[in-house]
Amino acid sequence: VKKMAKAIMADPNKADEVYKKWADKGYTLTQMSNFLKSKTAGKYDRVYNGYVIHLD
């Protein structure tokens, strides 16, 4: 998940494709939050927020 999150950060155009894969795998927002937690607070906030919007 972190590898794909980094791919989104490097190229935001990949976001919809990645979010669809995550949704197809049934990842919940709680799971995504836990996967994307980082020592650098807020590092993956943009990715998480994008997934929230995708699921909505």
Rank of each mutant, 00 (worst) to 15 (best):
E17T: 09
D56F: 14
G42F: 06
Y44M: 01
A23T: 08
A15R: 07
A23G: 04
R46H: 13
D11R: 05
K39I: 08
K43H: 05
G42M: 05
M32A: 01
L29R: 09
K43T: 07
K20W: 05
L55T: 04
S33Y: 14
I8V: 12
S38I: 06
D16G: 12
G42Y: 06
R46N: 13
D45I: 07
I53D: 11
T28E: 02
A41G: 09
T30Q: 14
R46V: 14
Y19V: 01
K3I: 08
S33I: 10
V1N: 03
N49A: 14
F35R: 03
A10K: 14
K3H: 10
K2V: 10
Q31Y: 04
H54R: 03
A7L: 14
K14L: 14
D24P: 00
K25Q: 14
K21P: 00
Y48L: 15
E17D: 10
D56E: 15
A10C: 13
I53S: 11
K25E: 13
K39N: 12
G50I: 06
T28S: 09
K39D: 13
A7Q: 12
Y48W: 06
M4S: 08
T30C: 13
F35D: 03
I53P: 01
Y44L: 03
T30R: 11
T40L: 08
I8G: 02
V52T: 05
K20M: 09
T40H: 14
K6G: 08
K43L: 11
Y44G: 03
N34A: 13
K21L: 15
D16A: 14
A10G: 08
D11G: 02
K2A: 04
G26E: 06
T40G: 08
A23S: 12
Q31H: 08
G26K: 06
D11K: 06
A7I: 13
K43C: 09
V47Y: 06
A41C: 11
A7P: 02
L29E: 05
D45C: 09
I8S: 02
K2R: 12
T28L: 04
Y19C: 04
K20T: 10
D45G: 05
L36W: 04
K3A: 13
G50V: 07
A15T: 06
K20C: 06
Y19D: 00
T30P: 09
V18H: 03
K39C: 10
Y44N: 00
I8Q: 00
K37V: 08
K6A: 12
K2I: 13
A7V: 11
Y19K: 00
L55V: 04
A5C: 06
T40C: 10
L36N: 00
F35V: 05
V1P: 06
A23E: 08
F35G: 02
K3D: 11
K2C: 14
W22Y: 02
W22K: 01
A41H: 11
D16F: 14
K25T: 11
I53F: 10
G26N: 06
D56G: 14
S38H: 08
M32C: 07
A5R: 02
L36C: 04
R46C: 14
H54F: 15
D11H: 08
N49K: 11
S38Q: 04
K39Q: 11
L55N: 04
M32V: 13
M32S: 00
K2G: 02
P12V: 07
K2M: 08
V18W: 03
K25H: 11
Y19E: 01
F35I: 09
A23F: 08
T40R: 10
